[in-house]
Amino acid sequence: MKRPINEMKVVFPSLSENERFARIAVSGFLSFADPKIDELADIKTAVSEAVTNCIVHGYPDTIGKIELAVRVFEQGRVRVRISDKGCGIEDIEKAMQPLFTTKPDEDRAGLGFAVMESFMDKIKVTSRLGKGTTVVLEKTLGTRDRL
């Protein structure tokens, strides 16, 4: 694996106020790479989903730490890792199904993973019950490509 050309890591408590902070942190950091507006919007949206999952599902009854790490590689490849040390996911495949939610009463649409999947190039979810969950999201920033 090649070395990143730039990277950052922030750790913050699972307060819902910090969903906004996570989005701002990611877009602020990525500004050096001069992403297109819609690419940045996609990444912000996916990060918002992943961080919300940590807050709502990872730490349903407690406040725990969330780590957000972003690495940028050559050719505009961005890798974002969002991890918590919360309760973990019992059945990842089921959790990722569109419209599946364990909290319908709180108006959760069950579309978090669907949004992450459609807004990013790649998504990888690893989880261990009682240990936590890590989501890795990847997207290659536009090469300002010619037709």
């Binding site: 989903e49 108006d107 649409a109």
Partner: peptide, 13 residues
């Protein structure tokens, strides 16, 4: 200015 799937939940509700 920004919306994630929480906004979809809001619409569905």
């Amino acid at each position: 200015t920004f919306m994630d799937s929480s906004g979809i939940g809001l619409v569905m509700g």
